[in-house]
């Protein structure tokens, strides 16, 4: 049952990639397919990051451990789409002109911020295995709180890309703000009390 759930999540996370790749392959990606993939992989990475960050509150709320079981997987999917987003930028926007990359990295704030967020996600991805958890011990948790900083940088990156209408950005920012609010200790404790652990309930 839980294995099926994990496989289903795996399949679902693969869907955006398959869909956008199919769109481009079948000629529906428009006249600039590289830009199309760049934008859609970027947005997918942000959505997956928000989904990943909603798992802990969902688990507290429902007490279903299935949410915790797919957290690492979804975190790695987030990182994968972020890497695809970067690859699109390098291949299709810069045309692999690495001197232009150097220029962008020095001069353009939204590129710097996006790159920093990706490096953070990289650090989280490489320390997501059991071996790293063991070695890092208590520091692991502190390190993985960096995901909140990454989220802030991703939103800033997106905000600085917006040119004409911030409506779409605002939707993501509001979801992010809501997820962060759920982590305020007072709120978080209340969330846990909605459906108390069975053992606790019996004792009470």
């Amino acid at each position: 049952m839980l294995l099926a759930w994990r496989l289903a999540v795996f399949a679902a996370a693969l869907c955006p990639f398959a869909w956008y790749a199919w769109q481009v392959y079948s000629g529906n990606g428009g006249p600039e397919p590289g830009q199309y993939l760049l934008l859609n992989f970027g947005v997918t990475a942000l959505i997956l990051l928000l989904v990943t960050l909603s798992l802990t509150p969902l688990m507290k709320l429902t007490r279903w451990k299935g949410f915790a079981l797919v957290r690492r997987q979804l975190g790695l999917w987030t990182f994968s789409y972020a890497v695809l987003h970067l690859l699109c930028y390098l291949l299709f926007i810069l045309g692999l002109d690495f001197s232009a990359l150097g220029d962008d990295l020095v001069r353009r704030p939204y590129i710097i911020v996006g790159f920093a967020a990706l490096l953070m996600l990289l650090a989280l991805a490489v320390t997501s295995n059991r071996y790293a958890m063991k070695r890092l011990g208590k520091r692991w948790k502190a390190l993985h709180r960096m995901v909140y900083a990454a989220l802030a940088l991703v939103l800033l990156h997106f905000f600085w890309v917006v040119r004409a209408d911030m409506g779409e950005w605002l939707n993501y920012a509001l979801v992010a703000a809501f997820l962060m609010a759920l982590r305020i200790p007072v709120v978080s404790r209340r969330l846990s009390r909605v459906r108390p652990r069975r053992g606790v309930a019996r004792r009470g």
Binding site: P31, E32, F92, I93
Partner: peptide, 8 residues
Amino acid sequence: LPNSLFSP
């Protein structure tokens, strides 16, 4: 434009 993935 139009370009393709293999020729930007």
